[in-house]
Amino acid sequence: MTLDFAAALVVGALLIACGAFTAAWRRERGAALAALPMLAAGAAVCMAGAGRFSAGAPDPETGQELAALVSVVGLATAIVAAAWARKGAPR
């Protein structure tokens, strides 16, 4: 069991698959929103893994940078989605 690019991609893919499953399976609007952090987390792990294990890259911090940006975009999406869900909820 070694830490390599395949392991990082498998973890990221599992998180993205869980997010897609949640978005497709959950009927309630609030519960389906839980897919957003999972999708962002999976994408961030894939980005960081690609940056960590890319051989000979001129900027090895690029993967870390993209992982941070994807996390912030996930937060922005969650804010909009939560506001949209609360708008339709009963008072």
Binding site: L33, A40, A68, G74, A82
Partner: peptide
């Protein structure tokens, strides 16, 4: 563990805030 400490802090804050926000909506 992938040597992305700064992204780890950002992810902890952003994903944690998303979790609290979506959990509150739920």
């Amino acid at each position: 563990s992938l040597w992305a400490g700064f992204a780890a802090v950002i992810a902890l804050v952003c994903l944690g805030a998303s979790a609290v926000l979506i959990g509150g909506t739920d």
